[in-house]
Design a protein around this nucleic acid. Structure first.
Length: 737
DNA sequence: TCCAATGTAATTTTT
DNA sequence: TTACATTGGA
C-alpha cells in the first residue's frame, strides 16, 4: 500500500524533469513530443492521475484516446494501479470505440437506429460489389477493394458523395464516385455504419446540433490523445470540436513514428499543432529508457535521412550493448532457419524466455516460412494478424446470424446465411426475393416473412425461406429473455453447424468446429468494462477488434507480427526480416519521396522496439508468387552507420535448397546480387535442429554448427550413439526432416 | 442447386 | 504458391 501525500506527490517521484513538467501542466493545449521508449505511457497515466488528485476533476470528465484497444486496456489498468477504483469512470478507448459509444446514444439524431451494426472491410467489399453489379460497373476493371479504399479515403477526408463526384479524376475514382452515393444510402437503409462512418457521423452531428456538441464539450473537460502523429482528418476534426470550449487538449506523439499515411493519417496534424492551437505548450521527451546505445543509433542514423521531420535526437544513458547484426542469407528459407537457430542459441546462452523474442516483417505473407521453421525447431510461437479469428468463415457465419437477429435490416448478413447451412435457396431464388423486397420496399428479412406471396418461387423453396424467417424471428424474440451466451448456444445447436462439421470429420472441419466452440465461450464470458452484457455490445466490440488486441503477451511464445502491429510494443530481442529493396521499402514506394519516408519511419519503429538485441536479415532471393526474385539489400541497411553493426554473411554457409531459377519476369529487372564464391554446393543443408541420418550412428538431431565451407563442423546428438562432433564434409550426413 | 475442375490474380500496412 | 471465382457438368 502506498500512502499519498499532497505537497510533493510521490506520483511524480519516478519521473524525470520534463516528464514531471508535462504531467503538471494544468490547462490549455499541450503537445508532448515523445520519442520512442521515452516513457510517454508513463506520462499519460501519471497525468491522468495528477488531474484527478490535484485538480478538481472528475473521472468521467476525462477522455483518453489510444491507438488500439489493447493500449486502452493497459492504460486503464495502469491508472487503476495509480489511483484505484475511481479510474473506472474515465473514458479510455480508441477513436472508433469512443465514437461508437457516443453514437449508441445519439444515432437517432442522425437517422440511424440505436442498434446499428458496424461493417468490417469484408462486408464493405460485398456491399460495394452489389452496388457495382446493380449499376453494371465491371468488377474486372475496377476492383471492389480499390473502390472501397477510395471511398474510405474520401470519407476520412470528410468529403461527401456529392462533392467527391467533381473531385474524381482517374477512371477508378470516377467509378468510385458513382458507387459512393449509392453505397452510403444502402448502408443507412441497412442501419449499418462502416469504420469511417463511426468517425464522421459524430462530426456531422456536432456540426448540425450545437446543443449536443456543447453537452460533450462540457462533459469532457480534459482530453488526452496518444499516437497523435497517426490521426487523420476526421479524428483531428472530432478533437477540434470537442476541445473548442475548454481547450484542454493534451496530445502525445512522435512524427518519426507516423506510419499510417496510407490510411489517411496526416503527419501535418502534429507538425502544425502550434498553428492549430495557439499557445500550445510543447514538451520534448528525448531520453530513451528502452534501448541500448547501438540500437538507438542505428534507428537514428536511418531516420535522419528523412527530410520532412522535426529535428531532434533521441539519446540514452543505457549501455552500448551488442552491435546490431546484419545477416545476409540466400533465401527466405535460410532466413527463417537462421532466425529460429539464433533464437535457440540465444535461449541456451542467455536464460531468456520465448516471450522475449519478436520476429517482424513488412508483409503478412512473409510469416508462413518463418512459422514453418519455428515449428520444425519446436519453438512455440504466436502470430499476430494474418487470418484473424473473427474473419474466419465459420465465425462470420455465426456472427451473421447474431447480427441479423440484432439488426433485421442487415441485408449482407441475411444473404450470407440464407443458404448456410444449405436450404436449397440459391442465387435464382434469392434474386427473386430481392426483387420482391425492392418492389414492396421491404427489408430482405421482411420479404422472407412474406415468401408465400412470391409465386415465381416454387412452394417448396417458399417454405424454406419462410422457416428461415421464423428462425430469425424466434431468436429476435428470445433475445430479451436469454443471455447472449445462452442465445448463441441455442442457435448454434438449432442450425446444427457443429453436427455438420462432425460428419465431415476432416482436420479442417475439426478446427472449424473448435473455432465455433471458442466463439460460444467468448460470447458466454463476455462482459465488457462498462458492465454491458448485451449481444449488441459484443458484436460491436468484435467489429472494432484489432490484431494486436488479441495478442496475449503473457503466454510464453515467440511473437510474429508486421512492423505496423508492433507499434507501441517492446521486446528484449527483435529480428527484422526481409530488409530488401522492393520489400522493405516496398517497390511501389520508390517513386514517391513521401512514401519512402514513411517506409523509413516504419523501419525506425521496428528498430526501436528492441531493448537489448536487434538483428536485421535480408535474402538475396525470395520466393514470390511461386517464383524466385533477386534482391538487393535494403537501402536502409546502407544508411546505417557501419561502426554500429556486425555483418554476418551466411550465403555460403546455408546454400539454397531450392534450385536456382532466377527472375524471368521482365517487371523485375533488378541488377544481379553481388557475386560470391560458392564452394559448398555439395554439402547438405544443415541447421541447428535439423534431423540427420548417419551411416553408422543412425538418426540424430543437430545441436550446434561451427565453422563454414570445408571446415563446417556439426555437433549431433544421436538417438543411440549419443553426442558426436563431426566434420560435415566427411560425415556424409543425410538431412531427413 | 451443387460440386469439381479450371483459370486467374495476388501481397502492403488496418481501425 | 495459394486462394478465390467462374465455369460447366451432374
Amino acid at each position: 500500500m502506498t500512502t499519498r501525500q499532497t505537497a510533493k506527490s510521490p506520483l511524480l517521484d519516478s519521473l524525470n524533469e520534463v516528464q514531471c513538467a508535462a504531467v503538471q501542466h494544468e490547462s490549455g493545449p499541450v503537445l508532448i513530443h515523445a520519442g520512442a521508449g521515452s516513457g510517454k505511457t508513463r506520462v499519460l497515466t501519471h497525468r491522468v492521475a495528477y488531474l484527478l488528485e490535484n485538480l478538481d476533476t472528475k473521472p468521467w470528465e476525462i477522455l483518453a484516446v489510444t491507438f488500439t484497444n489493447k493500449a486502452a486496456r493497459e492504460m486503464k489498468e495502469r491508472i487503476l494501479d495509480l489511483i484505484g477504483l475511481t479510474a473506472r469512470d474515465i473514458w479510455v478507448g480508441t477513436f472508433h470505440s469512443i465514437c461508437a459509444r457516443i453514437l449508441r446514444v445519439e444515432a437517432e439524431k442522425l437517422g440511424y437506429k440505436r442498434n446499428f451494426m458496424v461493417f468490417d472491410r469484408d462486408d464493405q467489399i460485398k456491399f460495394v460489389k452489389e452496388v457495382m453489379r446493380d449499376h453494371s460497373i465491371p468488377e474486372k476493371d475496377y476492383a471492389p477493394a480499390n473502390v472501397v479504399r477510395i471511398i474510405s479515403g474520401a470519407k476520412s477526408a470528410l468529403v461527401g458523395p456529392d462533392d467527391y463526384v467533381s473531385m474524381a479524376k482517374e477512371p477508378l475514382e470516377e467509378a468510385a464516385a458513382l458507387v459512393y452515393g449509392h453505397y452510403q444510402k444502402r448502408l443507412k437503409a441497412n442501419n449499418t455504419m462502416d469504420f469511417d462512418d463511426l468517425l464522421t457521423n459524430p462530426i456531422y452531428l456536432f456540426e448540425a446540433d450545437a446543443a449536443t456538441l456543447e453537452r460533450y464539450q462540457d462533459k469532457f473537460k480534459y482530453l488526452l490523445v496518444d499516437e497523435y502523429q497517426d490521426t487523420n482528418k476526421t479524428q483531428y476534426q472530432f478533437l477540434k470540436h470537442l476541445v473548442a470550449k475548454h481547450k484542454n487538449l493534451c496530445v502525445v506523439g512522435d512524427d518519426d513514428q507516423s506510419i499510417y499515411r496510407w490510411r489517411g493519417a496526416d503527419i501535418q496534424n502534429i507538425l502544425n499543432i502550434e498553428k492549430d492551437y495557439p499557445g500550445c505548450k510543447v514538451f520534448r521527451l528525448e531520453q530513451n529508457y528502452r534501448s541500448t546505445k547501438n540500437i538507438l543509433e542505428v534507428a537514428n542514423s536511418v531516420v535522419h535521412n528523412n527530410r520532412r521531420r522535426r529535428d531532434k535526437s533521441l539519446w540514452t544513458n543505457n549501455d552500448y550493448g551488442d552491435k546490431v547484426a546484419i545477416i545476409d542469407v540466400v533465401d527466405q528459407i535460410a532466413e527463417a532457419k537462421y532466425v529460429s537457430a539464433a533464437i535457440k542459441s540465444e535461449l541456451a546462452h542467455s536464460g531468456r524466455n520465448f516471450r522475449d523474442f519478436v520476429i517482424l516483417y513488412r508483409t503478412n505473407s512473409q510469416s508462413r516460412v518463418l512459422e514453418e521453421a519455428l515449428r520444425n525447431s519446436g519453438i512455440p510461437y504466436m502470430i499476430v494478424g494474418g487470418v484473424r479469428f473473427y474473419e474466419r468463415k465459420e465465425i462470420k457465419d455465426v456472427l451473421a446470424y447474431l447480427r441479423l437477429i440484432c439488426n433485421p435490416l442487415d441485408s449482407i448478413s441475411f444473404k450470407r446465411i440464407i443458404n448456410v447451412p444449405l436450404r436449397g435457396i440459391g442465387d435464382t431464388s434469392l434474386a427473386k426475393l430481392e426483387e420482391f423486397a425492392r418492389h414492396h420496399a421491404l427489408s430482405l428479412l421482411q420479404a422472407a416473412g412474406r415468401a408465400s406471396e412470391i409465386d415465381t418461387i416454387s412452394p417448396r423453396i417458399q417454405k424454406n425461406i419462410f422457416s428461415f424467417f421464423e428462425l430469425i424471428d424466434k431468436y429476435s424474440n428470445l433475445k430479451e429473455e436469454f443471455s447472449p451466451g445462452e442465445l448463441a448456444r441455442a442457435l448454434v445447436e438449432e442450425i446444427g453447424i457443429l453436427r455438420t462439421f462432425k460428419e465431415v470429420n476432416t482436420e479442417e472441419a475439426r478446427s472449424r468446429s473448435d473455432n465455433v466452440v471458442e466463439l460460444l465461450t467468448a460470447i458466454a464470458n463476455y462482459n465488457n468494462e462498462l458492465g454491458e452484457y448485451s449481444l449488441e455490445a459484443f458484436l460491436e466490440e468484435v467489429a472494432l477488434i484489432a490484431d494486436v488486441d488479441t495478442w496475449d503477451d503473457r503466454s510464453n511464445a515467440v511473437t510474429l507480427m508486421t512492423v505496423h502491429s508492433a507499434k507501441g510494443l517492446e521486446f528484449p530481442v527483435v529480428y527484422i526480416t526481409g530488409l530488401e529493396e522492393g520489400l522493405f521499402p516496398l517497390t511501389r514506394t520508390f517513386e514517391s519521396e513521401e512514401e519512402l519516408e514513411e517506409e523509413r519511419r516504419l523501419f525506425y519503429v521496428g528498430a526501436t522496439r528492441a531493448r537489448e538485441k536487434l538483428s536485421l536479415t535480408w535474402a538475396s532471393r525470395r520466393l514470390k508468387f511461386g517464383e524466385y526474385f533477386q534482391n538487393l539489400p535494403s537501402r536502409f541497411i546502407d544508411e546505417i552507420e557501419p561502426a554500429l553493426v556486425e555483418r554476418i554473411d551466411l550465403r555460403q554457409k546455408y546454400p539454397a535448397r531450392t534450385p536456382w531459377r532466377g527472375a524471368r519476369s521482365s517487371r523485375n529487372n533488378v541488377p544481379a546480387p553481388p557475386k560470391y564464391d560458392d564452394f559448398s554446393q555439395d554439402l547438405p543443408q544443415l541447421y541447428v535442429g535439423s534431423e540427420v541420418k548417419h551411416r553408422k550412428f543412425g538418426i540424430g538431431r543437430v545441436k550446434a554448427i561451427q565453422g563454414n565451407g570445408e571446415n563446417l563442423k556439426v555437433v549431433v546428438r544421436f538417438q543411440e550413439a549419443g553426442e558426436r562432433k563431426l566434420v560435415a564434409k566427411f560425415a556424409n550426413l543425410e538431412v531427413i526432416e
